[in-house]
Design a protein around this nucleic acid. Sequence first.
DNA 1: TCATTAAATTGTT
DNA 2: AACAATTTAATGA
Length: 246
Amino acid sequence: MTRHNPGMTTDLTLHQRRREPTAAELDGIPWLKVLKSDQYERAVSDLKVGDAMPGDFVCRVGRPVTYWFGVVEGLLKMSSDNEQGQTMTFAGLPPGGWFGEGTALKRESYRYNIQALRKSVVAGLPVDTFHLLLDHSIGFNRFVMNQLNERLGQFIAAREIDRMNNPDLRVARSLAALFNPILFPGVGDVLRITQQELAYLVGLSRQRVNEALTALEAQGTIRVEYGGLRILDLEALRSHVVPRVA
DNA sequence: TCATTAAATTGTT
DNA sequence: AACAATTTAATGA
């Protein structure tokens, strides 16, 4: 697990900067496409979006669940505070990612902090609507099931990443997670992330991340672009073993 | 639309 | 951590 202290305390985005979603934003919400017209209408009318500024909290540990959240644009991080008050970052959340279905299902309280790493657009579906869709839409159930299954795989992979001491491998596997097309269909071929942001997520220095990215590019699995990364070979990122540096 | 300037990001030590 | 180089975004004529 990676640790760092952002030291910011802002309020929940959907409570503060809430507004109606635009057509383009609705288009970026993957599960809307599986709904039948009446359910679609209901979902769209209940959906809210909010603009999150860097450091803003989308949700916090212990707060009662109000929404099922998704990333429309930008980059969020999922983290948790340990006893010593340090922050452990579990995962980065790029566009197209929806999370918290576990807690939404059980109507519990949030088990993670979700915070914006950069200016982002966050969407939220009220829990009641979430349950309504679960009760009436097979397509929605299938989406959520897929989501849960894929995320389980991601968490198992994350534990392995944590044990790895090779920074190149850590970066590669973390990137593979961010490029997961099932969990984050909004990402596509180019992931918008700075090397500094990636460094925060994987818990390495920016220099070391830069080095790893250069190696991955030389290997032909990604291409480094200004403010983002282009995926060329996802399978290689997931499994390919980076040559040991000695 | 283009040129200039500021800001952000990257590459390197 | 610091710095230079590069790329993008913002500004205004």
